[in-house]
Simulated scan of single mutants.
Amino acid sequence: MRLRSVITAVLGAAVLLAATPGSAAAATGQFRYSYETVEGYEASGFLNNPPSGRCINLHGVGQENPQPGHSPKNRTDAWATVYTGTDCRGDSFRLRPHTGGASERLKLRSVIFN
């Protein structure tokens, strides 16, 4: 009888583990960029612990702003690929983890971490 209880408990635990969704992968750290607002002011944008494997359109430099972002700094623990267009389209450039950065000549509107 005890063996049946142990087997039932083990099977129950296995079912719970299988049903529990895994935590979403995320890059740890901060990604920063600069941009000019529609009103003409210089601003900074940042992403804290951004999700991995998902394209992120950057705030302030989307289709509503004719000026793209610039001067990205990748301070996360993952590679960041920045794109000149929204939805991770257009020309791209990869920034290494922790120390990756570029000058204001690199224009960007979206990023993906992997």
Results as ranks from 00 to 15, higher is better:
7 I>A: 15
7 I>G: 04
8 T>K: 12
10 V>R: 04
11 L>H: 10
12 G>H: 03
13 A>V: 09
13 A>S: 15
14 A>S: 08
15 V>F: 15
16 L>K: 08
16 L>D: 15
17 L>K: 04
19 A>M: 14
20 T>L: 12
21 P>F: 01
23 S>C: 10
24 A>V: 12
24 A>Y: 10
24 A>D: 06
25 A>W: 14
25 A>M: 06
26 A>M: 09
26 A>L: 01
29 G>Y: 02
29 G>Q: 00
29 G>R: 02
30 Q>T: 13
31 F>R: 12
32 R>V: 11
32 R>Q: 13
32 R>K: 10
35 Y>E: 00
35 Y>F: 09
35 Y>M: 03
35 Y>D: 02
36 E>F: 07
36 E>M: 06
38 V>S: 05
42 E>Y: 00
46 F>C: 13
47 L>S: 02
47 L>G: 01
48 N>P: 13
50 P>D: 03
51 P>F: 03
53 G>M: 03
53 G>Q: 06
53 G>V: 00
55 C>N: 09
55 C>G: 11
57 N>L: 09
60 G>P: 07
61 V>H: 05
62 G>M: 01
67 Q>N: 06
69 G>T: 05
70 H>N: 07
76 T>Y: 03
78 A>V: 08
79 W>Y: 09
80 A>Q: 14
80 A>E: 07
80 A>H: 11
81 T>F: 11
81 T>Q: 13
84 T>G: 14
84 T>I: 04
84 T>L: 14
85 G>Q: 02
